[in-house]
Each structure stands twice: as structure tokens, then as C-alpha cells.
Amino acid sequence: MNWYTPVTMEELAAALAQGGESSRVIAGGTDYTIHLRQGKANPGALIYPGRIPALREIMLTEDSLRIGAMATMAELSLALAAVPEFAAIADAAGGVGSPQIRSKATLVGNLCNASPAGDMLPIAKLYDMVLEVLDGNGRLTDVSVSDFFLGPGKTALQPGQAVTAVRANRTAVTGWVSAFHKIGFRSYVSIARIGMGVLLHIDAAGVISDARLTLGAVANVPIRVYAAERLMQGKPLDRAMLEKVTAVVSRTVHDNCRPANRLYKTEAARGLCADVFAQLEKRMS
């Protein structure tokens, strides 16, 4: 097997060009290693960009957040926990797998695997993230998250391309609060059965002026629940509103998930909503 361990973006581009159709870029490798071991993957070349310093960066400026492809879940949860508008990212990153997984797994790796249960998929959707895609010619192209996920394990990424970073527009969400929560099979170290991210802007009068809500692990790709968002606009964050949002979320889950899980996920959505909004309230006070 060929292998490349580029230390600059130029070398990464060259590796992408040389690696060929069946080359595979790995970041943390926490999922891909299992596939390799089970003989389910047989790449012609492995490319590991972990030695490119720029890819490890998490850059938070006034108007944007940029997360390098090699920034780990542990680093993300530490860096963003105290930033209200991005705390949902910290919630999600801090809940991925175990401490061992979080010290290697990356947000970008999670997006590129595109598992419907991936915790970062509803997060990317929540922030309308933009993925920076590098090709073998060294060209960087922006791909919107809404164009990126095509289905389980399927993305818009072509052979010979790699995601080097994702960006979120901070200006659009400055002053907002956010939270993410998931329900798995146990409270810790579990694949998500439903994940939910919420971003809220609340004005001085305590009224929700804008809202975003996304769900993961329900359909093949993360979904944004516009109906719930519309419902929240112009309302205070109170029990009556929460009940209505919960009903919409439950219905969305019901309509999108597989029959085998329908009863459970539809019911459990209620608990999930309650937990996410409890977290938001805590963050607002």
C-alpha cells in the first residue's frame, strides 16, 4: 500500500494527485481503522495529513469559526464550551465516544464518514457550515453543507479531494445561544439514536427572535426542522412553546425514521427536546 504523510498543504495536494482513485485520507482513523481491519476497505494509498500544523487549528475570530480537519473532538469541546453561540459544537464533540475516541477523532472526519448517526452532521447543518475542499491541483473550493451529504456514507467529495477545514459564519449567530444533546443506548459512549442541535437568538424582552433546529440520526442525512423554527419565532421560551416545538419535532422524527425505531424515537424526542431546552435555559441565565 502506498502512503503519504504530507507536512504542507502543497504536499497534501500532491499526495491527492498521486494517490489515485482508491486513495483514502484518514484523520483520527477511529472509524476507518475498523473497516480496514474487517477487510471492508482496501485503499490503494493512505494519506494522513496530521502533520500539517495548519490543519490542527481552531480559529475563532469575530466574524467566523474555522475548524481544521485535524482538530480533535477533545480540543473542540475545550475550545468552544464557553462560547455561547458555539457551545452546541462543544456539547456534541464532548459527547462523541469515549475520552480515547475524542483525543483522536475529528469533526471533519465525522462529516466525511457521513454516517447518519454521526454527531457532527446535525451540528454542521445547524451552523450552515462551509467545507473547504482541496483537490490535487491545490485548488480550494467551498462546498455548502446542504450540498455535501448525499446519503449514508456518501458525500459530494470526489476521489482525489480532501476536506481541509470547515467554517461557520459567526457574525450571523453572535449573541445567540446554542445547545446539542443526543440520546444513545446508554448515557456515555454511545452512538446517537437521535441528536438535536438548537440555536436561539433571544431579544432583550425574552422573546425568541430567530431560531434554528436540526436533527441527526433520524434520516439518512441531517435535517433542519423549519416548522419548529417558525413556531419559535416571536415567542418567549416557555412551557407552551416548548410543548408545541416538541410536537413538531416528534412528528418530524416519526415521519423520517425507519419503522423499526419509529415508536421509540418518536416518544424519546420529547425527552430530547426537554434536555436541549433545559441546557439552553441554563446557558441563558
Binding site: S187, Y264, E267, A268, G271, L272, A274
Partner: peptide, 9 residues
């Protein structure tokens, strides 16, 4: 028992 999520602690 969390009757909303079915989890038992």
C-alpha cells in the same frame, strides 16, 4: 426511570 426517554438510572 425517565419515562420520556425510557432510560433507567
Amino acid at each position: 426511570v425517565d419515562t420520556w426517554t425510557g432510560f433507567t438510572r
